[in-house]
């Protein structure tokens, strides 16, 4: 279990990283919709990932309304891949 990343291993954060690994950037609202959590819960989870420099967030306005776009950093992608590899190693 030592190779597992405790920051990513929490269920919500694991799902956030899994979603972000599929594309360049995702909207905050899409992640919230897919995880079915409140704004505050998602913000809290994102803050943990951001502090670990696994994700970056950027606020941009689209058609007059503010949007928060989230993307996985290179460090975050590497950590997520290492975490998945560690999980696969456990069940092998």
């Amino acid at each position: 279990m030592s190779e597992l990343d405790p920051i990513i291993h929490a269920p919500n954060r694991l799902q956030i990283c899994a979603m972000l690994a599929t594309s360049a950037e995702l909207d905050f609202k899409l992640i919230k919709f897919q995880l079915d959590v409140s704004d505050s819960v998602l913000s809290k989870q994102l803050k943990v990932l951001e502090e670990a420099e696994y994700i970056v967030t950027s606020k941009r306005s689209s058609q007059g309304r503010p949007c928060t776009w989230i993307s996985l950093t290179e460090c975050g992608r590497a950590a997520f891949n290492a975490h998945v590899a560690a999980l696969k190693k456990i069940i092998a």
Binding site: L14, Q15, M19, T22, Q34, V84, L87, I90, I91
Partner: peptide, 24 residues
Amino acid sequence: LDKDAAAKALASIQSTQQETIQHS
């Protein structure tokens, strides 16, 4: 128990990614 938890985590990753892919 570790194996079960790991299998569940992997399944959760796969289903989340499939949902995102299907959505897009």
